[in-house]
Design a protein around this nucleic acid. Structure first.
Length: 242
DNA sequence: AGCTTGTCCTGACTGC
DNA sequence: TGCAGTCAGGACAAGC
Protein backbone atom coordinates (compact mmCIF):
# COMPACT_ATOMS: atom_id res chain seq x y z
CA UNK A 1 0.00 0.00 0.00
CA UNK A 2 1.04 3.51 -0.72
CA UNK A 3 0.58 5.48 2.53
CA UNK A 4 0.21 8.70 0.54
CA UNK A 5 -3.21 7.55 -0.61
CA UNK A 6 -5.61 8.20 2.26
CA UNK A 7 -8.52 6.87 0.24
CA UNK A 8 -7.06 3.37 0.55
CA UNK A 9 -5.66 3.63 4.05
CA UNK A 10 -7.96 0.99 5.45
CA UNK A 11 -6.28 -1.67 3.32
CA UNK A 12 -3.32 -1.44 5.73
CA UNK A 13 -5.43 -3.26 8.30
CA UNK A 14 -5.47 -6.26 5.98
CA UNK A 15 -1.70 -6.49 5.60
CA UNK A 16 -0.28 -9.86 6.59
CA UNK A 17 -3.67 -11.52 6.35
CA UNK A 18 -4.17 -14.62 4.26
CA UNK A 19 -7.38 -15.20 2.35
CA UNK A 20 -9.30 -18.19 3.70
CA UNK A 21 -12.43 -17.65 1.66
CA UNK A 22 -13.50 -15.29 -1.12
CA UNK A 23 -16.99 -14.47 -2.31
CA UNK A 24 -19.05 -11.79 -4.00
CA UNK A 25 -22.11 -9.89 -2.80
CA UNK A 26 -23.58 -7.39 -5.27
CA UNK A 27 -20.63 -5.36 -6.50
CA UNK A 28 -18.55 -6.19 -3.44
CA UNK A 29 -15.79 -8.76 -3.11
CA UNK A 30 -15.50 -10.13 0.42
CA UNK A 31 -12.45 -11.99 1.68
CA UNK A 32 -12.24 -13.76 5.02
CA UNK A 33 -8.72 -13.30 6.35
CA UNK A 34 -6.93 -15.64 8.74
CA UNK A 35 -6.15 -12.61 10.88
CA UNK A 36 -9.77 -12.51 12.12
CA UNK A 37 -10.70 -9.76 9.75
CA UNK A 38 -12.89 -9.34 6.68
CA UNK A 39 -11.54 -7.43 3.69
CA UNK A 40 -14.24 -5.83 1.55
CA UNK A 41 -13.28 -4.53 -1.88
CA UNK A 42 -15.36 -2.48 -4.27
CA UNK A 43 -13.89 -1.76 -7.69
CA UNK A 44 -15.83 1.47 -8.15
CA UNK A 45 -16.10 2.63 -11.74
CA UNK A 46 -12.62 2.26 -13.13
CA UNK A 47 -11.16 -0.32 -10.75
CA UNK A 48 -9.83 -3.63 -12.01
CA UNK A 49 -7.85 -6.52 -10.58
CA UNK A 50 -4.91 -7.40 -12.80
CA UNK A 51 -2.76 -10.47 -12.44
CA UNK A 52 0.97 -10.33 -13.16
CA UNK A 53 1.05 -13.31 -15.45
CA UNK A 54 2.59 -13.91 -18.85
CA UNK A 55 0.64 -11.30 -20.76
CA UNK A 56 3.08 -8.42 -20.31
CA UNK A 57 1.43 -6.77 -17.31
CA UNK A 58 4.06 -6.26 -14.62
CA UNK A 59 2.32 -3.87 -12.24
CA UNK A 60 4.37 -0.85 -13.25
CA UNK A 61 1.51 1.58 -13.66
CA UNK A 62 0.82 4.86 -11.85
CA UNK A 63 -2.74 3.79 -11.02
CA UNK A 64 -1.94 0.66 -9.05
CA UNK A 65 -3.28 1.41 -5.55
CA UNK A 66 -2.66 -1.90 -3.83
CA UNK A 67 -1.05 -5.25 -4.53
CA UNK A 68 -2.04 -8.64 -3.19
CA UNK A 69 0.50 -11.48 -3.07
CA UNK A 70 -0.96 -14.89 -3.88
CA UNK A 71 0.06 -18.25 -2.40
CA UNK A 72 2.20 -19.13 -5.41
CA UNK A 73 4.11 -15.86 -5.05
CA UNK A 74 2.44 -14.16 -8.01
CA UNK A 75 1.00 -10.68 -7.66
CA UNK A 76 -2.52 -9.34 -8.10
CA UNK A 77 -2.73 -5.57 -8.59
CA UNK A 78 -5.69 -3.34 -7.83
CA UNK A 79 -5.66 -0.66 -10.52
CA UNK A 80 -8.06 2.23 -9.99
CA UNK A 81 -7.67 5.31 -12.17
CA UNK A 82 -10.43 7.49 -10.69
CA UNK A 83 -10.09 6.31 -7.11
CA UNK A 84 -13.76 5.47 -6.77
CA UNK A 85 -12.88 2.03 -5.51
CA UNK A 86 -12.83 1.30 -1.79
CA UNK A 87 -11.20 -1.01 0.70
CA UNK A 88 -12.86 -1.64 4.03
CA UNK A 89 -11.57 -3.94 6.76
CA UNK A 90 -13.82 -5.13 9.59
CA UNK A 91 -13.46 -7.61 12.45
CA UNK A 92 -14.23 -11.16 11.30
CA UNK A 93 -17.87 -11.73 10.43
CA UNK A 94 -18.86 -8.12 10.86
CA UNK A 95 -18.89 -7.02 7.23
CA UNK A 96 -22.65 -7.57 7.16
CA UNK A 97 -23.04 -4.76 9.64
CA UNK A 98 -21.68 -2.21 7.20
CA UNK A 99 -24.68 -0.03 6.33
CA UNK A 100 -24.42 -0.56 2.58
CA UNK A 101 -24.08 -4.32 2.81
CA UNK A 102 -26.84 -4.54 5.39
CA UNK A 103 -29.22 -2.68 3.09
CA UNK A 104 -28.18 -4.57 -0.04
CA UNK A 105 -31.02 -6.25 -1.93
CA UNK A 106 -31.06 -9.93 -2.92
CA UNK A 107 -28.71 -11.47 -5.44
CA UNK A 108 -30.45 -11.10 -8.83
CA UNK A 109 -29.66 -14.61 -10.09
CA UNK A 110 -30.46 -16.37 -6.83
CA UNK A 111 -33.71 -17.78 -5.48
CA UNK A 112 -33.77 -14.95 -2.95
CA UNK A 113 -34.75 -12.54 -5.74
CA UNK A 114 -38.45 -13.25 -6.16
CA UNK A 115 -41.11 -11.56 -8.28
CA UNK A 116 -43.20 -10.99 -5.18
CA UNK A 117 -40.42 -9.42 -3.16
CA UNK A 118 -39.34 -7.24 -6.05
CA UNK A 119 -42.86 -5.96 -6.59
CA UNK A 120 -43.20 -5.28 -2.87
CA UNK A 121 -39.93 -3.30 -2.96
CA UNK A 122 -41.02 -1.25 -5.97
CA UNK A 123 -44.37 -0.52 -4.30
CA UNK A 124 -42.68 0.68 -1.13
CA UNK A 125 -41.26 3.84 -2.71
CA UNK A 126 -42.31 6.84 -4.78
CA UNK A 127 -38.81 7.24 -6.17
CA UNK A 128 -38.23 7.07 -9.90
CA UNK A 129 -37.60 3.46 -10.83
CA UNK A 130 -34.11 3.93 -12.23
CA UNK A 131 -32.56 5.73 -9.25
CA UNK A 132 -34.27 3.16 -7.02
CA UNK A 133 -32.59 0.33 -8.93
CA UNK A 134 -29.23 2.09 -8.62
CA UNK A 135 -29.68 2.31 -4.84
CA UNK A 136 -29.03 -1.47 -4.69
CA UNK A 137 -31.98 -1.86 -2.32
CA UNK A 138 -34.53 -3.75 -4.49
CA UNK A 139 -31.81 -5.96 -6.00
CA UNK A 140 -28.03 -6.08 -5.75
CA UNK A 141 -25.59 -5.42 -8.55
CA UNK A 142 -27.55 -3.34 -11.06
CA UNK A 143 -25.53 -0.29 -12.14
CA UNK A 144 -26.13 2.39 -14.73
CA UNK A 145 -25.52 0.21 -17.78
CA UNK A 146 -27.76 -2.69 -16.76
CA UNK A 147 -30.47 -0.41 -15.39
CA UNK A 148 -30.85 1.23 -18.82
CA UNK A 149 -30.71 -2.13 -20.58
CA UNK A 150 -33.24 -3.80 -18.28
CA UNK A 151 -35.69 -0.89 -18.41
CA UNK A 152 -35.53 -0.89 -22.19
CA UNK A 153 -36.13 -4.62 -22.32
CA UNK A 154 -39.07 -4.33 -19.90
CA UNK A 155 -40.46 -1.32 -21.84
CA UNK A 156 -40.54 0.85 -18.73
CA UNK A 157 -39.68 4.54 -18.64
CA UNK A 158 -36.73 5.22 -16.27
CA UNK A 159 -38.69 8.03 -14.62
CA UNK A 160 -41.73 5.86 -13.78
CA UNK A 161 -42.74 6.07 -10.12
CA UNK A 162 -45.54 3.56 -9.95
CA UNK A 163 -45.00 0.09 -11.37
CA UNK A 164 -47.86 -2.40 -11.47
CA UNK A 165 -47.43 -6.11 -10.96
CA UNK A 166 -47.26 -7.04 -14.64
CA UNK A 167 -44.62 -4.43 -15.38
CA UNK A 168 -42.75 -5.34 -12.21
CA UNK A 169 -42.58 -8.97 -13.34
CA UNK A 170 -41.30 -7.86 -16.74
CA UNK A 171 -38.56 -5.82 -15.09
CA UNK A 172 -37.68 -8.71 -12.78
CA UNK A 173 -37.22 -10.95 -15.77
CA UNK A 174 -35.34 -8.29 -17.75
CA UNK A 175 -32.83 -7.71 -14.95
CA UNK A 176 -32.04 -11.42 -14.72
CA UNK A 177 -31.75 -11.81 -18.50
CA UNK A 178 -29.58 -8.74 -19.02
CA UNK A 179 -27.19 -9.70 -16.21
CA UNK A 180 -27.00 -13.37 -17.17
CA UNK A 181 -26.24 -12.50 -20.79
CA UNK A 182 -23.54 -10.03 -19.82
CA UNK A 183 -21.91 -12.52 -17.46
CA UNK A 184 -21.97 -15.07 -20.28
CA UNK A 185 -20.05 -12.52 -22.37
CA UNK A 186 -17.67 -11.81 -19.50
CA UNK A 187 -18.88 -8.31 -18.79
CA UNK A 188 -19.24 -4.92 -20.44
CA UNK A 189 -16.05 -3.09 -21.37
CA UNK A 190 -17.05 0.45 -22.22
CA UNK A 191 -13.68 1.97 -21.54
CA UNK A 192 -11.85 0.78 -18.46
CA UNK A 193 -13.10 -2.62 -17.45
CA UNK A 194 -10.72 -5.52 -17.94
CA UNK A 195 -10.57 -9.05 -16.66
CA UNK A 196 -7.62 -10.25 -14.54
CA UNK A 197 -5.82 -11.31 -17.70
CA UNK A 198 -6.31 -7.92 -19.36
CA UNK A 199 -8.98 -9.06 -21.80
CA UNK A 200 -12.11 -7.02 -22.43
CA UNK A 201 -15.64 -8.21 -21.85
CA UNK A 202 -17.69 -8.74 -24.99
CA UNK A 203 -21.05 -7.33 -23.89
CA UNK A 204 -20.53 -3.75 -25.08
CA UNK A 205 -21.38 -4.75 -28.68
CA UNK A 206 -24.78 -5.97 -27.52
CA UNK A 207 -25.95 -2.84 -25.67
CA UNK A 208 -29.18 -1.45 -27.05
CA UNK A 209 -29.75 1.44 -24.62
CA UNK A 210 -26.69 2.52 -22.65
CA UNK A 211 -24.54 4.83 -24.77
CA UNK A 212 -26.85 4.42 -27.77
CA UNK A 213 -28.47 7.87 -27.70
CA UNK A 214 -29.64 9.03 -31.14
CA UNK A 215 -29.54 5.56 -32.65
CA UNK A 216 -32.83 3.97 -33.67
CA UNK A 217 -34.59 1.86 -31.08
CA UNK A 218 -34.14 -1.77 -32.19
CA UNK A 219 -37.79 -2.39 -31.31
CA UNK A 220 -39.66 0.55 -32.84
CA UNK A 221 -37.13 2.63 -34.77
CA UNK A 222 -37.63 5.81 -32.77
CA UNK A 223 -34.30 7.57 -32.07
CA UNK A 224 -33.15 6.69 -28.54
CA UNK A 225 -33.32 9.69 -26.21
CA UNK A 226 -30.42 10.73 -24.00
CA UNK A 227 -31.06 12.61 -20.78
CA UNK A 228 -30.36 12.77 -17.07
CA UNK A 229 -32.40 10.80 -14.54
CA UNK A 230 -31.48 10.91 -10.89
CA UNK A 231 -28.27 12.70 -11.80
CA UNK A 232 -27.09 9.91 -14.08
CA UNK A 233 -26.80 9.75 -17.84
CA UNK A 234 -29.76 7.77 -19.10
CA UNK A 235 -30.80 6.51 -22.51
CA UNK A 236 -34.26 5.23 -23.31
CA UNK A 237 -36.87 5.00 -26.04
CA UNK A 238 -39.53 7.63 -25.48
CA UNK A 239 -41.96 5.78 -27.72
CA UNK A 240 -41.96 2.21 -26.48
CA UNK A 241 -40.85 2.69 -22.88
CA UNK A 242 -43.89 4.01 -20.97
C1' DA B 1 -38.33 9.72 7.11
C1' DG B 2 -37.87 9.85 2.32
C1' DC B 3 -36.34 11.68 -1.59
C1' DT B 4 -33.02 14.75 -4.24
C1' DT B 5 -28.75 16.92 -5.02
C1' DG B 6 -23.79 17.44 -4.43
C1' DT B 7 -19.16 15.39 -3.91
C1' DC B 8 -15.20 12.70 -4.80
C1' DC B 9 -11.55 11.75 -8.87
C1' DT B 10 -9.03 12.02 -13.33
C1' DG B 11 -8.74 10.91 -18.29
C1' DA B 12 -11.17 11.81 -22.52
C1' DC B 13 -13.44 14.72 -25.17
C1' DT B 14 -15.32 19.41 -27.03
C1' DG B 15 -14.90 23.97 -28.60
C1' DC B 16 -12.62 28.26 -29.14
C1' DT C 1 -1.73 23.79 -30.96
C1' DG C 2 -3.11 24.86 -26.36
C1' DC C 3 -6.02 25.23 -22.92
C1' DA C 4 -10.22 25.77 -20.26
C1' DG C 5 -14.48 23.67 -19.56
C1' DT C 6 -17.44 19.66 -19.41
C1' DC C 7 -18.57 14.86 -18.91
C1' DA C 8 -18.55 10.05 -17.06
C1' DG C 9 -20.53 7.52 -12.50
C1' DG C 10 -20.90 4.06 -7.37
C1' DA C 11 -21.73 5.16 -3.12
C1' DC C 12 -22.28 8.17 0.47
C1' DA C 13 -23.10 12.80 2.74
C1' DA C 14 -25.71 16.66 3.06
C1' DG C 15 -29.78 19.21 2.27
C1' DC C 16 -34.63 19.91 1.68
Amino acid sequence: MDPAMPRYDRARDAEGGRVDDLRRRGKYLIADLDTDRDLILHLGMTGILRWRGEDGWDGSDPYVRATIELDDGSMLDFRDVRRFGTFVVTPAGEHERLPTLAALGPEPLSGAFTREGFHRALSSTRQQVKPFLLSQRPVAGVGNIYADEALWRARIRPTARRIGRERSDRLWHAIRTVLAESIEREGTTFRDYQMVNGESGRNADFLVAYGQGGRPCPRCGEPMRKGVVGGRGTTWCARCQR
